[in-house]
């Protein structure tokens, strides 16, 4: 029983790391109907920039603040050069644009900051803690707290500020939002900037775990099954989807793995996602059909 609990809890906590990545996708998808393939490279870029600044001798907080300023500027530039000229094009056009954007962002990151692996030490000791006889990773616990806090902050921004109201209005009915004077371009800039910040948090957590390196941008692929399961339009869905994926892959590795030679973790979430596509194509909390992807 304690092995089951340990596997489950470990999986759930690790799953919040996936949620962190997925939330960035949900924000942009909700506000503009764009599946932003560049989210992974933005995540990598921001983590790499923070580490590079930090290694150059700046304090951690200042590095983070500077990185955020760059993310805001980046959001404005992307809105002007990519989103605005392509407004009202098909979702596939926009998806292809973000695919191109991901290469531009990654190339810029590599050109400016090189391709070495950087260690990122957040001062979290990755020693396990015992709750009764259940073993829990301290790092996972902190990652889960971070994801929870982030979701809470976003919920407050969306529900308690007037720009949050505008954001929800755009997500609900873009045409009506325009007709009452909501500035769509401004909303896109804000959403991309906020998604960039979310990417930064995710990048820092992932970077601390496996080093800040170019393979970080591949966490996008981990977010896909999370989005399919949780739904593309719900932050709550991204959290729950992450938990499901984390728990499922951990349980599968422990209980099915031994019979088929292990190595289940990388592909099991996709099998699960396909199963969800059969039963609930919009995901657990999603509203729109997936044709907008």
């Amino acid at each position: 029983m304690s092995l089951f609990l340990e596997t489950l809890i470990g999986g759930l906590l690790a799953g919040t790391m996936y949620s962190l990545v997925a939330i960035g996708f949900v924000l942009i998808y909700k506000a503009s109907g764009v599946f932003n393939f560049a989210q992974g490279s933005i995540l990598l870029f921001s983590a790499l920039l923070l580490v590079t600044l930090h290694e150059a001798g700046l304090p951690f907080v200042l590095s983070a603040a500077l990185t955020m300023l760059v993310l805001i500027a980046g959001a404005v530039v992307i809105e002007h050069t990519v989103l605005r000229p392509l407004a009202n094009r098909s979702p596939m056009t926009l998806f292809m644009a973000t695919l191109g954007l991901s290469y531009v962002v990654e190339g810029t990151a590599q050109g400016l900051m090189g391709a070495q692996v950087h260690a990122l030490d957040l001062g979290i000791e990755d020693v396990p803690i015992f709750f009764g006889d259940v073993l829990v990773s301290q790092f996972d616990l902190i990652a889960a707290t971070t994801a929870g806090t982030l979701a809470l902050v976003l919920a407050l921004l969306f529900n308690r500020t007037r720009i949050g109201i505008s954001l929800r209005a755009v997500a609900d009915d873009t045409r009506a939002a325009l007709s009452i004077g909501i500035n769509l371009n401004r909303i896109w800039q804000i959403v991309w900037a906020v998604a960039g910040m979310v990417g930064l948090v995710a990048g820092v957590m992932w970077g601390a775990r496996q080093g800040v390196q170019f393979s970080l941008s591949l966490v996008v692929l981990k977010a896909l099954p999370v989005l399919i399961i949780g739904g593309f339009t719900s932050i709550g869905g991204a959290i729950v989807g992450g938990l499901i994926v984390g728990a499922a892959e951990n349980l599968a590795e422990t209980y099915i793995g031994p019979f088929i030679g292990g190595g289940i973790t990388p592909w099991f979430p996709y099998v699960l996602a396909i199963a969800f596509l059969y039963v609930r194509p919009a995901g657990l909390f999603g509203e729109r059909a997936l044709e907008r992807v």
């Binding site: 007037r162 109201i165 505008s166 609900d172 009915d173 009506a176 009452i180 909501i182």
Partner: peptide, 15 residues
């Protein structure tokens, strides 16, 4: 904005 409350709909009109 069907998923938002009446007051939030009206506040959105003040954007």
């Amino acid at each position: 904005f069907k998923k938002m409350s009446v007051i939030d709909n009206i506040l959105a009109g003040l954007a």
